[in-house]
C-alpha cells in the first residue's frame, strides 16, 4: 500500500515540475524535434545530470541498487525509431500525454487512447517478436562504465561538463 502512495506522490511532484517547465506541450516537443526550441532537452538533460550524480553517489554508499534494462539492439533500435515516428505524430510521449491532459491540452486524450491500443497490439504481437527482434544483439544489462572498463565517475564528470557546455551553446544560439 505504501508503495502505491509513494508512486502517487512521486508522480504528482514530477507532473508539477513538467508543467512548470513547459514540457507538456506539443509545440515544445515538436520544437525540439525541429531543432529550434530545446526546452524539453534542457529539462531532460538537467534531470539526467543531477540524477546521474545522485544515483551513483547513493550506489557508492550502498544506499541504492541500479535497475538497468537489458540492451537488445534489435528492440532498442527498431523500437526506438518506431517510437520516434509515433512521438512526432502525437507530439507527446506516454508520460507527457497524461500531463498535457492535466493542464487542459486535451488532444493528449487521443494519444492516451491510441497508446492503450498500441499496447494491446504489442501484446498480440509479442510471442512472434520475442523469438525474432528481441533476440537480435542481446547484450544483457550493460552500462557504459562496464563496457569501457572504467570507473563511473570518469564518465559522469565529463558528461556533466559536456552537458553544461551544451546548455551554454543553447543559450548563445537562443534555442
Amino acid at each position: 500500500m505504501n508503495t502505491l502512495l509513494y508512486g502517487l506522490i512521486t508522480g504528482i511532484l514530477f507532473g508539477f515540475l513538467l508543467q512548470r517547465g513547459q514540457v507538456l506541450r506539443y509545440d515544445k516537443q515538436l520544437g525540439a524535434l525541429r531543432f529550434f526550441d530545446m526546452t524539453i532537452v534542457k529539462f531532460m538533460l538537467s534531470s539526467v545530470l543531477v540524477g546521474m550524480a545522485g544515483v551513483y553517489f547513493l550506489k557508492d554508499f550502498g544506499l541504492a541498487t541500479l535497475a538497468v534494462k537489458p540492451t537488445i539492439l534489435g528492440g532498442n533500435i527498431i523500437g526506438g525509431l518506431i517510437f520516434g515516428i509515433g512521438w512526432a505524430l502525437l507530439g507527446y510521449c506516454p508520460g507527457t500525454s497524461l500531463g498535457a491532459l492535466g493542464e487542459g491540452r486535451w488532444d493528449g486524450l487521443w494519444g492516451i487512447l491510441g497508446m492503450l491500443a498500441g499496447a494491446a497490439l504489442f501484446a498480440e504481437a509479442y510471442p512472434g517478436i520475442k523469438k525474432t527482434v528481441l533476440t537480435w544483439g542481446n547484450f544483457g544489462a550493460i552500462t557504459l562504465p562496464q563496457i569501457l572498463g572504467i570507473n563511473h565517475w570518469l564518465i559522469i564528470i565529463p558528461f556533466i561538463i559536456g552537458g553544461i557546455l551544451l546548455f551554454r551553446w543553447f543559450e548563445k544560439k537562443g534555442l
Binding site: 534494462k69 537489458p70 537488445i72 528492440g75 532498442n76 527498431i78 523500437g79 526506438g80 525509431l81 518506431i82 517510437f83 520516434g84 515516428i85 509515433g86 512521438w87 512526432a88 505524430l89 502525437l90 507530439g91 510521449c93 506516454p94 500525454s97 487521443w110 494519444g111 492516451i112 487512447l113 491510441g114 497508446m115 492503450l116 491500443a117 498500441g118 499496447a119 497490439l121 504489442f122 504481437a125 517478436i129 527482434v133 528481441l134
Partner: peptide
C-alpha cells in the same frame, strides 16, 4: 501516433 509510439516503446522496452 499513440498506437505507433506505444508499439515502438514496448518493442524498445
Amino acid at each position: 501516433g499513440g498506437v505507433i509510439g506505444m508499439f515502438g516503446a514496448r518493442l524498445a522496452d
